[in-house]
């Protein structure tokens, strides 16, 4: 017994080291897997507050660029409003909409923390369950797809951006409709790949890749990127496309979270036997 105690006392530093290292590594792995990493998350209160303050400060630095982007978006939206159209028909139109029901709603949010140079990139936005955000909702920006909501606290949410290898979304060629998984390879934050495009599909440089309605995360037709290179896969039957992402992840700031009102209905239908 005394020997045992002496043994522990002698190697106490080694034991302390192993204990601390074990704690750190287990935290690391549990936060990396898709399960909740409830502690140590920047959606947590204290950090969220500090980062919001800091972000409010740094926002001034790229205000000009953001303004320009928002102005462009405003112009695009304004050209869609009723005022932009010249009325051709003089017959009265009723707006009692029984033919169309609202499917998608957009909740605007601001990115308060993000990374783009790591292998596992994350973002934090300043909207949470109090604003109607739930996990697995899509996030889009002014230029295109941004990512998917991962975890939600009351006023903040973390987002897995497209530049995280754990996220796979479905994309399709805008002109021809062929679709395949969009994946980020972990090297360059501006590029991603789309695989499994059939060989007989017509592909050329500059083709647009947009979201596919199948995933229930994004509305169909949101830009993902444009093709810069393409090559035949090892199996000889499919193309892999290298695409340049529409969203610049080094400067993303204002985003919109997509709320699909028919998601549960579609999921229930698909799950029923």
């Amino acid at each position: 017994m005394q020997n045992l105690i002496r043994f522990f006392v002698r190697f106490r530093l080694l034991f302390l080291f192993i204990l601390l290292e074990g704690l750190a590594l287990s935290w690391m792995f549990s936060s990396r897997s898709f399960q909740r990493s409830t502690y140590l998350n920047s959606s947590r209160a204290v950090n969220g507050v500090i980062l919001t303050r800091y972000d409010a400060l740094t926002d001034y630095l790229n205000l000009a660029k953001q303004n320009e982007q928002l102005a462009k978006e405003n112009a695009a939206l304004r050209s869609l409003t009723k005022d932009a159209y010249l009325p051709v028909y003089t017959t009265p139109q009723t707006s009692e909409d029984t033919l169309y029901k609202v499917r998608y709603q957009y909740i605007s949010a601001q990115v308060i923390n993000s990374s783009f140079r790591k292998r596992q990139n994350y973002m934090t936005i300043n909207r949470g369950s109090a604003h109607g955000i739930a996990p697995q909702m899509g996030v889009i920006g002014p230029k295109g797809v941004v990512g998917e909501v991962k975890e939600v606290s009351e006023h903040f949410a973390t987002v897995i951006p497209l530049i995280n290898p754990t996220l796979a979304i479905s994309g399709r060629l805008k002109h021809t409709g062929f679709f395949g998984p969009v994946k980020w390879e972990g090297a360059d934050y501006r590029m991603a790949t789309v695989s499994d495009i059939p060989r007989y599909a017509q592909v050329s440089h500059g083709d647009s890749i947009v979201t596919d309605g199948r995933s229930l995360i994004f509305p169909a037709g949101i830009p993902i990127g444009t093709v810069t290179e393409y090559s035949i896969q090892d199996d000889k039957n499919f193309y892999t496309l290298l695409i340049e992402l529409s969203t610049d992840f080094s400067s993303v700031d204002h985003v919109y979270v997509v709320l699909d009102k028919f998601k549960t209905e579609i999921l229930n239908l698909q799950q029923s036997p």
Partner: peptide, 9 residues
């Protein structure tokens, strides 16, 4: 880690 969201890295 709390700032970087990196678990126990």
């Amino acid at each position: 880690d709390a700032f970087e969201n990196s678990g126990g890295l």
